[in-house]
Structures are given as C-alpha cells and as structure tokens.
Nucleic acid binder design. Structure first.
Lengths: 220, 220
DNA sequence: TAGTGATTGTGTTCACATTCACAAGCTACA
DNA sequence: TGTAGCTTGTGAATGTGAACACAATCACTA
C-alpha cells in the first residue's frame, strides 16, 4: 500500500497544490532539501500531515535528511497531472483583466495566457502583457482554435451570465469568475468564483476569535 | 443542546459565510422564504448539511415552509459577529487596488473602504471610488486614526514585505494579500493570500478528473 | 565501526463531519 | 375538522481525515 496505489484523499489533493508555490520559493532560495517540519511551518500545517500527504504520492524523502526540493516539485506536478502549461484566455480587459494580463509570474507557474477579449472597440487591438486584445464577437471560435482549457471571466457583473454561457458552448469546462453570484452553468463546467468579500469576512472573524493554533509534532 | 449553546464546527462556520451572498441574491429576487433544498442546490451541498448548519445557530425555520430569508441573514450575521461594517484600507492603487476601490458592492455586504494609500506622487490626491488616495508615508498613523480592521495589500511583490510589516506594527491583525509568497507576519496577524494560480490549477485538475458529484437528500 | 542526532514513513487511535432516516410540525384545502 | 403534502430538526450511524508515537533509516563524527 504505497506509491500512488489506492486513492488520494481530497484534502491531500488540495494541499499538494498549496505546497507547490512555497516549494518554488525554497528552491529559489537555493535549498536542495526541505524537511517536513520546515514546509509545515511555511504552510501552517502539522508536519505529520505533510509527510502523510507525500506518502500518498510515493516515498520521496530520505530519513534523517528531508525531501529533495526539485524532485518533490516534479512528483507533485506529476501526481496532479500538471505537467504541461495550462492554456488560458481572459475575457474582459478592465482593471482586473489588465492586472492578470500584466502579471509576469503565470509563465513560471505552468500557465500560459493565449488570448484576451473585450467588446469595447477602443480596447480591441491593444497589446497588454503578451497578447493582443481581440473582439469578443469571435469568442467561441477563438477559444476552440487556441485550445483554451480555462477562461477567466473578468467582465462587469451584468455581462457575466452571457459570457459564461458562450464559454460553456465553446466546450471550455473550467471557468474562473470574478462575478460572485452563481453563474448557471451546465454540469460539465467547473466554476470557481473569486469572492473577496467572503475571504475578508472569514479573515476578520478568525482574527476576532483568535483561537490559539497549535502546530507541533511530538516535541513541540 | 440547541440555540447557540455548545460549539459550532469549523466547517459550519465556513459554510455560514458562504450562505450569505446566495441569500442576498434570493432576497433581491423577492423571495420571502427559502427551503434547505433550494439553498443547498445553489451552494452545491447536501440539504441536510444546510439544516444542520442552521440548527447550530438556533431553530430558524418553519416546518413545511422553509426559512425566512431576512431573518436567516440576520441570524447568520449575528452568529458570525458580522453586525457592524468592517473598516478596510487598500494599500497600492494599481490595477487591482483600483478595481477594489471602484467595486460598488462592498457597501452592501458589510464592508466600508475608509482609506487608500500609494507611494506614487501622481496617485496621491486622486479620488478613486469613495476615497482619496493618501501618501503611504502616513500609513501607520492613518490606519490607527481610522480604526482600520483589515488591510488589503495590493502592492508590487517587492514592496509587500515592508508594507506588511508596517501594517502589523500599526496593530491591524487581518491582512488580505495579493502577494502569494508567504509574508512573514507576527502570530497575532492573520494573513489570507489570494492565489489565483492555485485556484486555477485546482480547477483544471477537477475538470480533468470529472468525478460525478452526488448531492441528493433521501429521495434523489 | 560504532554511536549520535535527525528525519521520514506509517499503523493505530481518536475526533470530527457528513449522511441517513424519521418524527414533529406547518400550510392548504376540501 | 381532517387529511395530504412539505419541510424542518435531530439522534444515530457511517465515513473520513488528523494527530500521535515510534520503528526504520540516513548522515556524520570520532
């Protein structure tokens, strides 16, 4: 019962994703290995959770030493089927859309923005970041020809349902939306909404009820 | 063991927050009551989860009818100590900061942006949304005089650690950051990072491994 | 080569959360 | 008033993940 046999718990999957970026940081700092204790501290989880998580994708560490950072990143990405760049399109080049397009890091993290759309004539033709803004009229056709896997919907709330429908029709089944109210989408389309209000409310709640988080592992 | 006695499970707390916005939508649609089945459908959870969650904050529904939407929202907000507006400051008036400041909905959701800061002289003095951008030099002093409870850090990555430190020094203990790499903060400060890469990676993973989500409650 | 200190890997235990199933209670209507 | 149809509220069962504790293993040093 080791190495990728059996099934990986859902929570572990979620955490595996969240390890990736800290590991990148550790790698950039020049560390060759990282211990479960270190990584746990960065991610604010229990070290034994880290070890168990990694045990689900195979025994990757060396006792007494830790985990080889580079190998670890590789293994996680393999386990999460996150090998090739994910092809992304941004719909809506307002403040948020622009921020995304100008964000330089996506390239390093396995994402590639391949197209941007807007319906406003003065924006169409502009070059923002690495792409040139296209007319939203061509949305469906272009999503298909660019083999887009994920669409970021950053349009005004009123337009969102229409855009979402068209994206669904084009066969894209991952949508990241900045419109918090639920978009009615077919079952085969996964939608994640970025809801800052929600995060902020939770944050303040937890700050108020400051429950002491204990982390330790054995000798704490 | 009813009505606010005992303790509320963590997962329930999280969900209570996530019910708020859908309930607002239902309210705006003109519905007076909502059933656990309806709300569960919107939130993609099991109806019995909804009922149990609400049972932790008291018996709020009427059998055969459902829950009074307005009362429900009130009760949830009370339970989450989310009665008064949360006072927010935005640091960094770039694309993201501007998007936040111009976002009209916060006011309706219990948030009030009371200040914005930037270090660039040409931005200081501009009015964006409801506030006038102030010089970041006065940050600590102004955070205190405005009794800011939560700071949104939307500055370039390189400046983030410094801003975070100053925010911490000013006594604010909730920070929402758009800088994904962990900010080193004292223990009494809660930081939530908005990490789009993380969300996108999860989204694509779940779209690929399309596991059929079942929801039903008894008769499905 | 033996000893020391550190760290992983994991079986077991425990705590927590979800689901189920059904009684209790409401509305509507004849 | 009585009946039918919903919907809530909740005890009990089930499922799942987290924490723990410790054996196994490695590097390093004398």
């Amino acid at each position: 019962m080791s190495v990728g046999s059996g099934h990986i718990p859902n929570e572990t999957i979620d955490r595996l994703f969240s390890y990736l970026r800290p590991l990148m940081c550790v790698l950039n700092r020049g560390s060759v290995t990282v211990s479960s204790r270190e990584l746990a501290e960065i991610c604010t989880v229990n070290p034994s959770v880290v070890r168990k998580d990694f045990s689900y994708i195979g025994s990757l560490g060396t006792r007494g030493v830790g985990y080889n950072v580079r190998e670890l990143i590789e293994s996680i990405r393999r386990a999460l089927k996150f090998d090739n760049d994910i092809r992304i399109a941004v719909v809506g080049v307002g403040n948020i859309g622009r921020a995304l397009l100008e964000h330089p890091r996506f390239g390093f993290e396995g994402f590639k923005i391949v197209a941007a759309f807007d319906s406003s004539p003065e924006k169409v033709g502009q070059t923002v970041g690495q792409v040139t803004v296209e007319d939203a009229a061509d949305l469906e056709k272009r999503l298909q020809s660019e083999a887009v896997q994920l669409v970021i919907v950053a349009v005004p709330e009123i337009c969102a349902p229409d855009v979402a429908r068209r994206v669904g029709d084009a066969g894209v089944n991952s949508v990241l939306s900045f419109t918090p109210c639920g978009l009615a989408m077919p079952d085969n389309v996964n939608v994640t909404s970025v809801d800052l209000s929600l995060e902020m409310a939770r944050l303040v709640y937890h700050s108020c009820s400051q429950e002491g988080l204990r982390i330790g592992d054995g000798a704490a």
